[in-house]
Design a binder for these strands. Structure first.
Lengths: 136, 136
DNA sequence: TTCTTGACCTGGATTGAGTCCATCGTAGGA
DNA sequence: TCCTACGATGGACTCAATCCAGGTCAAGAA
């Protein structure tokens, strides 16, 4: 993630304290924070940062393909910094915990042409659901 | 869907005009209405029906396993009456159109034990994305 | 058929997530 | 150092969904 800011600068991004803090908060594996959680953590480092800025920055990171949006429950979207490593998600129906997982095979290949209704299919999103060890 | 009301009555449901109308609106294949769309159509048949009742009834139908909740965009949830026939969804990134699809194989089998983090995995949800013929 | 009652419905207030916008501030080039 | 266009702010607003107090009615009992 440390070179993320360099990559963004290379794309003409103006690097500000706010954007740096948002990028820093979103660092690590199995990180799936909501926008409000990102904001809460960003405030600890930069007390005046506004929610609008967090939403704007997350939106830009998503548009640039640096962060992926995940919506596993019907509630707030979550932001996943692991966008450069394709993966799917495993969600606990009890506590909502989310893990990144890597199924075998290409899920795209499992949709026969006869089931594509003439669509050009380019992406698949798989969400596995179950109970985690501590909710069972 | 016509025997849905009979099934519900059998489960001790009190059948009211409102519940009947909601169930009728949710009939057919490739039907994926939002709660507000269900409400709009229900109002045509029963002008005084309230949004709260539509939400309550949809929630009960979901809890009974008669209808499935689908959230393909980050926006309003959609309700899919096809819950008794397992299927996945194909969504157009352009216009949002949704089709029911049936991939080959069991997607659950594609998640190796080593990737389950001790979870008891019981469900998979697959969303294919692409462009429909008229958006391409 | 009428009565009774607890489950159901209503509409308005409320919550929560997210967006919009007018204004102010500042990163980075000249 | 100065300028200015891009970025940040925060308060108002939208949209989806839920909550709640009070009125209504489906279905079993008599």
């Amino acid at each position: 993630m440390s070179d993320l800011l360099a990559r963004l600068r290379g794309r003409g991004w103006r690097v500000t304290a706010q954007r740096r803090v948002v990028a820093e908060v979103l660092d690590g594996d199995h990180v799936h924070l909501t926008a409000d959680e990102v904001h809460a953590r960003a405030v600890e480092r930069l007390p005046e940062i506004s929610r609008a800025t967090v939403y704007n920055t997350l939106g830009e990171l998503v548009a640039l393909g640096e962060v992926a949006e995940v919506s596993t429950d019907g509630r707030a979207k979550r932001y996943d910094p692991n966008a450069h490593h394709p993966h799917q998600h495993l969600v606990c129906s009890g506590c909502g915990a989310i893990r990144d997982v890597h199924p075998i095979g290409d899920p795209l290949a499992d949709l026969p042409a006869g089931e594509r209704f003439g669509f050009t299919v380019s992406e698949v999103e798989v969400t596995y659901r179950g109970l985690c060890p501590s909710c069972r």
